[in-house]
């Protein structure tokens, strides 16, 4: 105990404070998750006016490991997550540090950079459709006014995926920015001031003082963002619907289709569990890599 309490009821506060969270987990989370696991080992059908679960062992999992569409969707999602989260983090860190240097207009910049996150994803899909659509998008209209024939941004085999990434970056840099900015604002000023007095250049201060101090917060942002990236669905649905071919198919929309359109709840449950395992491995791998790098860096200095 970091603290010492007085009185029995007071001692209980430690536990009482945790009760609401535990209650939520027990009442609202355990049952759905348990059901998910049972379902993933079952075949679910409609028969005689009821939903019938029959156990099938590992069949759903075996099928999932051979499912080419699921594999493709998972690879696309991973690529989308890795590429867009990397770029978003870079941009957000640059913007957040820059905002930290500015005093005039600070409020304006912060508000603008947080703004995209506030829009409903489905509206963001439509908004970018109005820009990127081949036939009536603003981008190609502007290009046409300049005498250039714009390409089919969302339907060209090589452009569709990059277009989706651009939209994702526009949308989610705001989230990483919000979190990293929080870190920037709480940086202890004394360190950089004393470095400045010692004659360090501004570049050295950013690289050697600010960025290392920001690392833990960036890590939080990256992990949360990566997890969110695996849920991306609504905006892609409107922009490319997974096409052309299956180049922008993502795992969350595939799971939804298997669940409802294909009416295979057991299989969808198995895909959900496997996706969960996949993200966990990804996140743990990333954290391990990160801690290795930190240790190496500390060893060097």
């Amino acid at each position: 105990m970091r603290t010492s309490g007085s009185g029995t009821l007071d001692d209980l506060f430690k536990y009482l404070a945790l009760v609401p969270l535990i209650a939520i987990l027990v009442v609202l989370v355990i049952a759905p998750v348990g059901q998910l696991i049972v379902t993933s080992f079952s075949r679910v059908r409609f028969a005689s006016g009821a939903v019938v679960f029959s156990p099938v062992g590992l069949e759903n999992y075996r099928n999932a490991l051979q499912d080419q569409v699921a594999l493709r969707a998972l690879l696309n999602t991973t690529a989308l997550a890795v590429i867009s989260v990397t770029i978003e983090t870079l941009l957000a860190v640059i913007l957040a540090i820059s905002v930290g240097y500015v005093h005039r207009g600070n409020l304006l910049f912060r508000t603008v950079f947080i703004f995209p996150m506030l829009l409903p994803p489905i509206a963001i899909g439509v908004m970018w459709l109005m820009i990127l659509d081949f036939n009536y998008g603003v981008l190609n209209a502007v290009l046409a006014a300049l005498g250039v024939n714009g390409p089919a941004w969302l339907a060209h085999p090589r452009l569709a995926f990059p277009s989706i990434i651009v939209v994702d970056i526009w949308h989610w840099t705001s989230f990483v920015f919000l979190i990293v900015l929080a870190g920037v604002e709480t940086l202890p000023h004394e360190l950089s001031e004393s470095a400045r007095i010692d004659g360090a250049s501004e570049r050295q201060i950013v690289w050697q003082i600010i960025l290392p101090l920001l690392r833990p917060i960036i890590l939080v942002a990256v992990i949360t963002r990566t997890i969110f990236a695996f849920k991306v669905y609504e905006q892609i649905f409107l922009l490319t619907d997974g096409g052309p071919g299956n180049r922008t198919e993502v795992i969350s929309s595939y799971i939804m289709r298997v669940f409802f359109n294909q009416n295979r709840m057991g299989y969808a449950a198995a895909l959900s569990v496997l996706t969960l395992i996949f993200i966990t491995v990804l996140v743990i791998g990333f954290m391990y890599l990160q801690s290795l790098l930190t240790r190496e860096r500390e060893a060097r200095s």
Partner: peptide
Amino acid sequence: TRGLTMGAV
């Protein structure tokens, strides 16, 4: 602006 993790920093 005071942000997410003064703790983390």
